[in-house]
Design a protein around this nucleic acid. Sequence first.
DNA 1: TAAATTGCTC
Length: 651
Amino acid sequence: MWAFHTPQPTQPPSLFNPPRAPPKLPSSSLAVNPSISTSTPNNNQLIQSLCKRGNLKQALKLLSHEPNPSQRTYELLILSCAHQNSLSLAQSLHSHISENGFDQDPFLVTKLITMYSELDSLDDARKVFDKTRKRTIFVWNALFRALTLAGLGEEVLGLYGKMNRIGLPSDRFTYTYVLKACVASECMVSLLKKGKEIHAHILRHGFEAHVHVMTTLVDMYARFGFVAQAGIVFKNMPVRNVVSWSAMIACYAKNEKPFEALELFREMMIETHDSVPNSVTMVSVLQACAALSALEQGKLIHAYVLRRGLDSVLPVISALITMYSRCGELELGQRIFDRMEKRDVVSWNSLISSYGIHGYGKKAMQIFQEMIHQGVSPSPITFVSVLGACSHAGLVEEGKRLFDSMRKVHGIIPSVEHYACMVDLLGRANRLEEAARIIYEMRIEPGAKVWGSLLGSCRIHCNVELAERASHRLFQLEPLSAGNYVLLADIYAEAEMWDDVKRVRKLLETRSLQKVAGRSWIEVKRKMYSFVSVDEFNPQIEEIQSLLIKLSAEMKEKGYRPQTKVVLYDLDEGEKERILLGHSEKLAVAFGLINTNKGETIRITKNLRLCEDCHSFTKFISKFTNKEILVRDVNRFHHFQNGVCSCEDYW
DNA sequence: TAAATTGCTC
């Protein structure tokens, strides 16, 4: 029941505008009572000002005595209902609108659809649309927006086809919504074609100068991973603003093109005067630094963030924490976290995953507990982070308990990502059967991520039979992903099943897929150097190679044994050793030894999992040369010091 | 009447 208080008029009483006592009749519904005629010319204004002050209940109370509510009054009431998050009030207001014959007013229909969308009641939104006889472009767009926000992309595209068939032309808003609809759906692959069609429409109808439309187009290609296509659209844009630049930088950062992201940022700073980077831009730029482990670059960006006063923006701070920890500076990340005045779940997630990738599983769990203790509700990503941390540290039982608590204690239903974490946790610990059982007992469809986790574990523990089962599914799910074929071939090779190796490699060839080359990066004096297995481009390559040969010989005397079994070709031992010395990580280590000062840590990043020989080699080097070496592989950090690694040989 | 970019996973 709505309480009744005397509303305060917004204007002081005057002779022309006398305050009136509101009706004192009790009323429990919003229905208009025509017998009451207490309305004044001011009632509409009064209701509106109540809405503006957030006093919705009183406004509705007053509405029940107003025989002639205006369109503006209804508009403010609708906005107020959405704002107060009350579906029941919204629905009674809706009935009131219908009873007063405003339910065909296209303006109010648009507002109603948006209101229901914000209240997560899409059924109501659809009903409003269905009942509307005169559907203006605003009405269509409102429904498109509602459905897109709810992730119902296919439905939008179906309706969009209908709109085209009745001959109603799209406007710039329609285009942004339908482009977003192409990526806001479960089966994105089929919708890329649709997206390209819409792209053609946009050009045909002369919308290429509309910044919003073109920026959304860039973003759509970015989300499909079509980086080159996104780049073409961006280049051809006649008008760009901060958002367009940010979208393109984000595209590079999110699609494993961090160099390009930083380069475009540089271009943005130099070439544009009206597009000043904002907090959103900086988040992507920091991601790019994190991806490259470019600590010096990252520090410069941090300085810029401070200069621009963006250092109190939560997403920027979280990105800074992640950047520092991914550059190996876990303590700096922790310090930034400590200094935060306000923290959200993402800040906590950043810190948890930071400890996770550095191998501090127990610490990550402690931080998780502390977060719960402080009353912050964990998000699904919190669990991915903390389960990942358990996995890296081999905390199997702890991880299982956390996974159980997800649903039972925190009411979060595990998604494929969480199952993938569990499979990884168990698989890495050589509990492969248990990992497989998890997959068979899953309540949702195990996607490529889950099977991929299992295949990865089979690679570590060389389990041919399970690997065959996992890869069978993977080849169906993602036939074009070269990594899966390579893993299976590696497993066969380790089991010396050379015929099968040949068969899988042949498969890779016939599908014209390329194996991802091993690559390592190192930052020396603010410049990034990248190494692939055979690198003739580095001017110091000869010096690097002879250093490696010398070190290898000397270390063999101290007990280093080249792990030639990681070379998965049927070759003689000498040849295998030669190949091992050409691994990109060793090249980067040698380059670091040559080009860093005494006492300076060597920091390397690698795009794949560290191979066992590089791991053992780097351990020896750290003792032999008395150097600290920090290597980030695709999963985690390895901190080599005095002959031991922080991962304790579990990775 | 409305809109485009972002943080935390592997």
